[in-house]
Amino acid sequence: MAKGKDVRIRVILECKSCVRNDINKKFSGISRYITQKNRHNTPSRLELRKFCPYCYKHTLHVEIKK
């Protein structure tokens, strides 16, 4: 089996609201999660609602480039 063309790839999810409001924060930081996605089932960018410890609420996290 070839390991070069795996179906599952590792992606990084970043908080969308932390990126916009980073200047006005008392504790500056960007929430990031690492997960996997199936390349064939979801070819577009992944968007999930995850908990952000800097915003103290569930926000939209979007896939970023490595």
Score class of each variant (00 low, 15 high):
Ala2Trp: 09
Ala2Ser: 13
Lys3Ile: 13
Gly4Leu: 09
Lys5Glu: 12
Asp6Trp: 04
Asp6Pro: 09
Val7Tyr: 08
Arg8Cys: 03
Arg8His: 07
Arg8Phe: 08
Arg8Lys: 10
Ile9Ser: 05
Ile9Asp: 03
Arg10Gln: 14
Arg10His: 05
Val11Met: 07
Val11Lys: 04
Val11Ile: 14
Ile12Met: 05
Ile12Pro: 02
Leu13Tyr: 02
Leu13Cys: 02
Glu14Cys: 06
Cys15Trp: 04
Cys15Glu: 01
Lys16Asp: 13
Lys16Arg: 10
Lys16Gln: 11
Ser17His: 03
Ser17Asp: 11
Ser17Pro: 00
Cys18Ile: 05
Val19Ile: 15
Arg20Thr: 09
Arg20Cys: 05
Asn21Leu: 12
Asp22Trp: 10
Asp22Cys: 03
Ile23Trp: 13
Ile23Val: 15
Ile23His: 13
Asn24Trp: 05
Asn24Ile: 09
Lys25Tyr: 06
Lys26Leu: 10
Lys26Pro: 04
Lys26Ala: 08
Phe27Ala: 14
Phe27Leu: 15
Phe27Tyr: 15
Ser28Leu: 08
Gly29Ala: 04
Ile30Ser: 07
Ile30Thr: 13
Ile30His: 09
Arg32Asn: 11
Thr35His: 02
Lys37Asp: 03
Lys37Ile: 01
Asn38His: 07
Asn38Lys: 05
Arg39Pro: 00
His40Cys: 04
His40Asp: 13
His40Gln: 08
Asn41Gln: 14
Asn41His: 05
Asn41Lys: 11
Pro43Gln: 03
Leu46Asp: 00
Glu47Cys: 04
Glu47Ala: 05
Glu47Gln: 10
Glu47Leu: 04
Leu48Lys: 06
Leu48Arg: 06
Arg49Pro: 03
Lys50Pro: 00
Pro53Ile: 10
Thr59Ile: 01
Thr59Cys: 12
Leu60Arg: 09
Leu60Pro: 00
His61Cys: 02
Ile64Tyr: 04
Ile64Pro: 03
Lys65Arg: 15
Lys66Leu: 13
Lys66Asp: 15
Lys66His: 10
Lys66Met: 14
